[in-house]
């Protein structure tokens, strides 16, 4: 109910862009479903664009058209929903998918990303993900990856896709 009030306040001036920062994170799933449904309907009705900030890939899959994945202050992968979910490219994105228990497939053990998020006041040199990346090589410590285009609308920041290093296994 409280979140509905907040949504009403946000929509009061008929905005063309709505930024929703973890709008359902504090809610239970059945209530979350109600709020997401409400936001979807309102967005269609008022034709509002939305930036949805969330850590829940399930909500992304159900709500978004395009996805930007952030790590340590940078967007490291940007793609359409289909591209990102069917063909994730960045080792961090792949690690995120490996960390979530799946409802559809049974796995014995999850495949988490090793290590921890870096200290934002003291980011690693080169690619910020290199200390946790299973593909990292020496050059990743020095060279910052630039945006590489995988295909129309799918961009990734990783030296593998600049052709500088080889992936250790097929990504």
């Amino acid at each position: 109910m409280k979140q509905r009030v907040v949504i009403a306040i946000a929509l009061a001036c008929n905005p063309s862009l709505l930024i929703a920062d973890e709008p359902t994170t504090a809610l239970d799933v059945t209530i979350q479903a109600q709020v997401l449904e409400l936001m979807r309907n309102l967005r269609e009705e008022f034709n509002t664009a939305m930036i949805l900030i969330t850590h829940d890939l399930g909500i992304v899959a159900e709500t978004c058209d395009k996805v930007a994945v952030m790590y340590a202050g940078e967007v490291i992968e940007y793609a359409t929903l289909e591209q990102l979910f069917e063909n994730p490219k960045h080792p961090y994105t792949i690690g995120l998918f490996g960390s979530i228990p799946s409802l559809e497939h049974d796995v014995e053990r999850l495949k988490p990303i090793k290590g921890l998020m870096p200290d934002p006041t003291n980011l690693p040199s080169g690619c910020p993900f290199h200390p946790r990346c299973s593909h990292a090589q020496d050059i990743c410590k020095e060279r910052k990856p630039i945006v590489a285009n995988i295909e129309e609308g799918h961009m990734v920041k990783c030296l593998i896709y600049e052709g500088v290093i080889e992936a250790k296994e097929v990504l």
Binding site: V29, T30, Q34, D56, L57, L81, F85, E86, L103, E104
Partner: peptide
């Protein structure tokens, strides 16, 4: 209803959702 309300991180499974 609880199971149908879980957002699934996959774009292949389009399920009927029961909204309580």
């Amino acid at each position: 209803a609880l199971l149908s309300a879980i957002p699934v991180p996959s774009i292949k499974s389009k399920r009927e959702r029961i909204i309580l």
